[in-house]
Each structure stands twice: as C-alpha cells, then as structure tokens.
C-alpha cells in the first residue's frame, strides 16, 4: 500500500515536472504595444478589405498621376520598361500559361504575366503600390492617389470601368480573372515530381 502510494506520488511529481517543462513559459520580456504604435506600422491590406484606409479614386483621376509618377518606369500604357508590365488583359478569361493558352497563342510570342491575366486579388495592388511604389519614392502616395492608381490599373486591364471609384467597400469586391486558377501547394516529397 505505502509502496503503491510512493509510486503514485513519484508519478505525480514526474508528471508535474514534465508539465512544468513543456508548459508555455513566459519570460516577461518586451513592452506592451500601444494602439498608436500598431497603427503607425500596420499598413497591410487583406483580400477581405481589412486594412484599407478611408479615401477613394477612379481610373479617370488616376490617369494623370500614373502618367507623372509611374509611366517613366512602367510605360505610358503599362506595357513595361525598367519596371514590370502592369497592363495586359489578354488572353481574355485565360491566363498566360497552360493548355488553353498554348492553343490561343498558336505560336505567337508569349504575353507577359500581368495584373489583368495573373493577379488573383485586387487588394494586392493597393497594398503593394502603397508600400513600395513609385520605386523612386516609395511610401509617398496618399490613400486617394493609391485608390485612383489601383482603379487605373484595373480599368486598363479591362476589369472595371473608367468611372468606377475604388474605395474600402468596392475594392475587395473586385473579382480578378485569374483568381480561380490559384491552388495550394500539392508537393509533399516522395518519389512523384510535381
């Protein structure tokens, strides 16, 4: 009986020790972040629209901003230059790869991957342009300018109309032509080449 108790007690102690070792431990290091500190850095925009700021802009409003701040590197019509090609709706309802594309292309030169034929989410344009463009002065665009440029890029790619305003409500609702093509990683090691 006593022996059993001793064993039981020993087991309890052992379990407690294991628990203490593996249980999450906090070190009390770091300083609580204030809402202001978070707001100052939290510039990301998610496909569901989280993070989009107030403001608005249409392709019409975007055109002169694009001509001034973007065209030198991306071409007057987004055809590309020092920076990537940004405009290219073809192949309509297709993508620049895969069997349908090869039939559509029919031996003609390849088209570039663009916002119009490859980007799965419209919110990515806002997020990326606001953080990284223009490459000569990143992080200098206002929210209105960024909405207007996003609208210009979407209209040039024949996804929205010239007059449609992009804002926190409308942008997340834009359906991108290539959206359905994106699939999760299906490689998992093993003998099959994927």
């Amino acid at each position: 009986m006593t022996r059993l108790l001793t064993i039981a007690a020993a087991l309890l102690v052992a379990t407690a020790l294991i628990a203490a070792q593996s249980s999450p431990k906090r070190y009390g290091i770091g300083t609580p972040a204030t809402p202001d500190q978070i707001a100052a850095l939290d510039i990301d925009v998610r496909p569901d629209g989280m993070g989009l700021p107030p403001g608005s802009g249409s392709a019409r409003e975007g055109a002169p901003i694009y001509a001034q701040k973007c065209a030198p590197c991306h071409g007057a019509n987004g055809e590309g230059g020092a920076g990537d090609a940004l405009v290219g709706a073809a192949p309509r309802d297709g993508a620049p790869f895969g069997p349908e594309y090869e039939r559509w292309r029919n031996g003609r030169p390849d088209v570039p991957f663009t916002i119009g034929n490859y980007w799965p989410y419209a919110t990515t344009i806002f997020d990326y342009v606001r953080r990284a463009m223009p490459a000569s002065a990143p992080g200098t665009l206002t929210a209105d300018e960024t909405y207007a440029l996003t609208a210009w890029l979407l209209a040039k790619n024949e996804i929205i109309s010239e007059s449609e305003a992009m804002n926190a409500e409308t942008l997340p609702r834009v359906r991108m032509p290539a959206r359905a093509r994106f699939v999760p990683d299906n490689r998992k090691g093993g003998s099959e080449v994927r």
Binding site: A95, F97, P99, F113, Y121, T124, R181, F182, V183
Partner: peptide, 21 residues
C-alpha cells in the same frame, strides 16, 4: 494577406493551367 510576393511572384504557373501558391 496575399501580398505581391505570394501572388504575382514566387508562384508556379503549371502545365494544367493552375498556379501553385
């Protein structure tokens, strides 16, 4: 968050017309 580097870039357009993300 679907940033540019996990959509426009670093994805794999495949032979069957899907793009691996």
């Amino acid at each position: 968050f679907m940033t540019r580097e996990e959509t426009s870039k670093y994805t794999d357009p495949l032979a069957d017309g899907t793009a691996r993300q």
